[in-house]
Design a protein around this nucleic acid. Sequence first.
RNA 1: GCCGCUAUCGUCCAGGGGUCUAGGACGCCGGAUUCUCAGUCCGGAAACCGGGGUUCGAAUCCCCGUAGCGGUACCA
Length: 420
Amino acid sequence: MLRIEDTDPERSTEENVAQILDALEWLGLDWDEGPLSQVERAPSHAAALERLLESGAAYRDAATADDVKAWKAEHGADRGYRGTPSADGTGAIRLRVPDEGDTVVEDLIRGEVRFPNRSYDDFVIARGDGSVLYNFAVAVDDAEMGITEVIRGDDHLSNTPKQLLVLRALGFESPRYAHVPLLHGPDGKKLSKRHGAASVQELRDAGYLPAAIRNYVALLGWGPGDDETLLSTEELVRRFRPEDVGRSSAVFDEKKLRWMNGRYMRELPLGEYTAAVAAFTGREPDEKLGEACAIAQEKAQTVAEVWPLIRFIFEEPVEDEKAWRKIMKNDAGTALEAVKEALRPLDQFTAEAVEGVIGPIPERLDLKPGKVYQPIRVAITGTTVSPGIFESVAVLGKDETIARIDAALAKLADSPPIPD
RNA sequence: GCCGCUAUCGUCCAGGGGUCUAGGACGCCGGAUUCUCAGUCCGGAAACCGGGGUUCGAAUCCCCGUAGCGGUACCA
């Protein structure tokens, strides 16, 4: 059963839930749909509160934050606040915390963690108006929903004794806990919590594949024991054990995710690859897109990087004066003429055929290969970067390639090449 | 301040008393692949937070310190 705990207080519960479920679905993570815990779910909370008040396990206390501070100044900083029931029955509701002993959390990852009761305040479980607070609400909900395992961020470890105390006071059994280390950004700042789902959205927008994200994230705070890095989701599921999770927080390293994503991209069957690119760009996954993807697959690290590499097949060459000036000089015109003439008689316009006729040109003209290939690249794409030149020409097609070379030649005639 | 957690290359993960002259991955640097970029292949630099113990022996166990993080709300 999924319970969404860390939500963005700026948004409504519905928005939070929708965003998180959406992220989970995209990531391909299963969850059992069940009731979601909400602090607003008052009825059973009120009943539990009543029980606690009646048994004396909790009491109303009118003390303000300043009063608590003053109390501590008097009794010592390591001493938890102990209040006195207000005479008029007003004020926040506090749970009585024992003075002796420890509340121990049996954590699957951290082992036995002891918290001295005397240093915990009689903490507030409900406001003066009766609305309940988080540590009370989760504890009651866990019990009522029959939660048996709680896996959550490390930042809740020191909240756990409070929840345990509530559970105990109510006579409920406690779930088993596993507190996993938090994730930090490269800047060292916390990256999880309210940015958790937003981050998934960002990774999705950046063109990462769900499978790569699953693999990468699994390796944060956990290792398979041997030195395997690329693990299929099946393998992850088989080998992952919560008790093997490390205890220290990890820094999210996008460089490594990029590398890993590239590996997954290259291993994707062309059909799936094309579908991913289609979904990302909002195009139809037709045959042309498939051909384009085929020549870009070895080069892109993310889905987002594919389109810039193949857009020249679908759109006019981009305007890039810098690239033009860098490449279109000296013998570029001569080379382009030769290429055009070599291409013209071709019937079978495949990458192999194109290579067959263009390949010998550098030697014939006594030019370095780059002096021939780069002008072609700039002529058909407008840029100096593209998939392999023979493949690019082949997929663009004979007529379009020649038309673009002609256009380049015309522009060259207007503004003659600058010699080095 | 108090309570708690954590501490191995820049980053992630191994190693949990001798096999550690500390292993793998990303990144970085160098070389190769003489069409760009990317990819791929080969090579290299790079770490046990500090101090005390325990022990024949400590990266590994204990203590102290330091640092980082979390909690300390009538937030979640």
